[in-house]
Write a protein that binds this DNA or RNA. Structure first.
Length: 410
RNA sequence: GGACCCGUAGCGAAAUUGGUCAUCGCGCCUCCCUGUCACGGAGGAGACUGCCGGUUCGAGUCCGGUCGGGUCCGCCA
């Protein structure tokens, strides 16, 4: 029976069987050290020099567990029998047992099926696993129910971001660039809903923070008084999420500042001038993050009251100001949200103002004809959070098989 | 879409102002070593310097084109 490597310390003196992959071999004449990993851990195996195995092989090893100070972790396995379950047919293109894998991004991604085996690369996705579980848990605690909405759409949603077109039998369809319409509709059903799912953006960007398919952490909640109810909820959710990832310095109240204000502060404090009629740019976001850290000792900051020019038609506004926010984490936008229009007439008016085609959107509009409560929500980029937590050079390192302008394989 | 940058063994890098057999580390192959843990030691193989053309006595290095890749901006999560 297979014993997991992490259990080895509990079975000293027993003869056991482990199964895993050989990551390294250190050959010292008559004695040979094999470094074996399974999903639970790593162990050093003592083998004879003629065991016939190579790095990369998948093996089944039976032997005696010995306590030994000379071994890392204090235990080692003295091999009595080594079976090669699956032979590595070709030398690996790079070494997986080195502390750092040290590859160019392109190599890292071209050989993704192999580079993902490296412990440090794996750890990115083990953290991501914790993040996804924590978001789910935190949202349920807040009374949200999880939904999954379609990703093949018969009509385009928001303006701005472009859609990937796909053939759908005898029709044209697009890939969802947001669950926006469906989650709003579902507020009329469940009051509070959340979704974790892929979104597709057909924008040809070449940056370290964009990919064309990413996993969005979405939420939408009914019966809010204003968008600050959304902010408070998101604040709590993030605090819970991050504590599951052992990050405990998320403020009870993340600082909140108007866009126009932060632009003034950035100019006065850091001498960086952003023209009044433009959106905050990446450099400005970075400085806003710096300000939040210096002034409030916070890695997070909410920027609010963007001009309606930068916001989609469903956004609730007062005058020219959008009743919404962006959330920056370490100077990078990780979430956008706010209050939505929930009155039918107001929605139609906003669509006309923004030149949004009503044709094909009836399913959405009609839900409002039959009353949806005041509501708001957010969309949050899961991979961006990972990138920022770990300080990764590129968001692509936080995606198993990233899709960008140049890459759809592997 | 705009601006800028980079292509040198399987991988990561080096090559004064253009100048002898293109260098180093990892990995690979052979040999030595019973306690290594990035094991060590000796030897070896592996590159028409992305491709095409040009300038020059001479090009990895300069110029043009081409293919591949990256960064920043725009836009966004």
């Amino acid at each position: 029976m297979r014993l997991l490597i992490k259990e080895i310390a509990n079975h000293e003196g027993e003869t056991v069987n482990i199964k895993g992959r050989i990551f390294n071999i250190r050959n010292l004449g008559n004695i040979s050290f094999l470094i074996i990993r399974d999903y639970s851990g790593v162990i050093q195996v003592i083998a004879s020099k003629d065991s016939g195995v190579n790095p990369g092989d998948i093996v089944s090893i039976s032997g005696l567990i010995k306590k030994d100070e000379r071994a890392k972790g204090g235990y080692e396995l003295k091999a009595e029998n080594i079976d090669i379950i699956t032979k590595n047919k070709e030398t690996l293109p790079f070494d997986l047992e080195k502390e750092d894998i040290n590859l160019n991004l392109n190599t890292l991604l071209d050989y993704r099926t192999i580079s993902l085996r490296h412990p440090k690369i794996q750890s990115i996705f083990r953290l991501y696993d914790v993040l996804l579980g924590a978001y789910n848990k935190a949202m349920r605690e807040e009374g949200f129910i999880e939904i999954k909405t379609p990703k093949i759409l018969g009509s385009a949603s928001e303006g701005g971001a472009n859609f990937f077109q796909v053939d759908y039998f005898d029709k044209k369809a697009v890939l969802a660039q947001s669950p926006q319409f469906y989650k709003q509709i579902m507020v009329g059903v469940f009051d509070r809903v959340f979704e974790v799912g892929p979104v597709f953006r057909a924008e040809p960007h070449f940056t370290t923070r964009h990919v064309n398919e990413y996993i969005s952490l979405d939420a939408e909640m009914g019966y809010i008084d204003n968008f600050y109810d959304v902010i408070k909820t998101l604040n709590r959710v993030i605090k819970k999420m991050f504590s599951e990832m052992n990050i405990n310095d998320v403020p009870e109240e993340i600082p909140c500042i108007k866009l126009s204000e932060i632009k003034k502060i950035i100019k006065e404090r850091y001498g960086y001038d952003i023209p009044e009629d433009t959106d905050i740019d990446p450099k400005g976001e970075d400085l806003a993050g710096k300000y939040a850290k210096e002034e409030f000792n916070s890695d997070f900051i909410f920027l609010t009251h963007y001009p309606m020019d930068y916001r989609p038609f469903y956004t609730m506004s007062e005058g020219e100001e959008a009743m919404g926010f962006d959330l920056l984490y370490k100077g990078l936008e990780i979430a956008t949200g706010g209050q939505r229009i929930n009155e039918y007439d107001q929605l139609i008016e906003s669509m006309k103002k923004k030149n949004v085609e009503i044709n094909g959107m009836e399913f959405y509009i009609n839900a409002f004809k039959h009353a949806i409560p005041p509501h708001g929500g957010w969309g949050m980029g899961s991979e961006r959070i990972i990138k920022q937590i770990l300080g990764l050079d590129s968001i692509k390192e936080a995606v198993l098989f990233p899709r960008d302008v140049k890459r759809i394989v592997p």
